[in-house]
């Protein structure tokens, strides 16, 4: 059943011992070059789903295959034996950036090269001129080339997230999974990071699956949205068709979190000018 999809998830279920399953027979298919938002309230299974795709967690027995391109990451609740090598094809951007704070930005970005270079060179930290040049170009494309020799921990949240994206670019990943990449950022940095993800999707054709808990960002940057509720896919379609009323129907009271707590969200959702203004506004509400 491989139809040249960038990502395909078949009947993936996961229970962490609780009676209610964290993922409930999730099916998902992304065509190459798509930019898809994964929305849902806290605890709806967004992170869990992304972590299954990257092979950090295994699904329950009886789950179907998770494929990235032609490669099977896990099947029937068993992670592929060569998962470490397979992860090279998948860039992962974390909510907390997950950089190594004491190392330089350059070294953090160069880590994207690790699967491609011989072990003796990687363990001695010896990267060639060409490898460093590739890292520099990736940094430049996200606008952090001037920070190359700073310690990653000295950077602001938005800058650190761009380092993480540069690392995924150096991996030459064809699929980037972004797990709440803007949840820890101020609105300006959040917009900037989303713009970068949209741009690499547009210009380099990299497939992006980004989990968000604010619907306005999904509508603004992603043509397609997949909505999860209690581990189940409850909507999969054009982001434009998602309106506040529909979300209320899907999520009930939990919807306020996703609508940014704004009471007049209907007006915001229906007015693109207002939505844009909200996205650009500083963190005062």
């Amino acid at each position: 059943m491989t139809t040249g999809a960038a990502l395909s998830v078949r009947e993936l279920s996961k229970s962490f011992g609780a009676p209610k399953r964290a993922l409930e027979s999730v099916r998902l298919e992304l065509a190459p070059g798509e930019m898809v938002a994964l929305i849902g309230a806290s605890g709806s299974g967004k992170s869990t789903l992304l972590r299954h795709v990257a092979g950090f967690v295994e699904g329950d027995r009886g789950s179907g295959a998770v494929r990235v391109g032609e490669r099977v990451m896990q099947d029937d609740g068993r992670i592929a034996r060569e998962i470490r090598a397979l992860r090279a094809d998948v860039g992962f951007v974390f909510q907390q950036f997950n950089l190594v704070g004491r190392l330089t930005v350059m070294t953090n970005v160069l880590m994207g090269q690790l699967p491609r270079i011989p072990a003796w060179r990687s363990l001695l930290g010896r990267f060639t001129h060409e490898e460093k040049a590739e890292a520099w170009r990736a940094m430049r494309s996200v606008g952090i080339e001037n920070l190359a020799w700073q310690r990653a921990s000295n950077l602001s949240g938005g800058q650190q997230q761009r380092v993480a994206i540069a690392r995924a670019l150096v991996q030459r990943a064809r699929l980037i999974l972004a797990d709440e990449p803007i949840a820890s950022l101020d609105p300006e940095s959040a917009r900037n990071v989303m713009e970068i993800l949209a741009r690499i999707n547009r210009e380099q054709g990299i497939t992006v699956l980004v989990s968000l808990h604010q619907v306005q960002f999904a509508r603004r940057y992603c043509p397609r949205t997949v909505a999860l509720r209690l581990g189940e896919v409850v909507y999969d379609g054009p982001s434009a068709d998602l309106d506040a009323g529909m979300l209320r129907g899907l999520y009930g009271a939990a919807v306020e979190e996703m609508l940014d707590g704004t009471e007049t969200i209907d007006a915001v959702m229906n007015d693109p000018v207002v939505a844009e203004g909200l996205a650009r506004a500083p963190a005062t509400a």
Binding site: L99, V100, M111
Partner: peptide, 24 residues
């Protein structure tokens, strides 16, 4: 978390230790 970040790049177990654990 940084170790998971290194793991996500497709690094080997030893690379994970050299780049994610030892610097810390």
């Amino acid at each position: 978390r940084p170790v998971e970040g290194v793991r996500a790049t497709g690094a080997s177990a030893l690379e994970e230790i050299f780049y994610g654990v030892i610097p810390q």
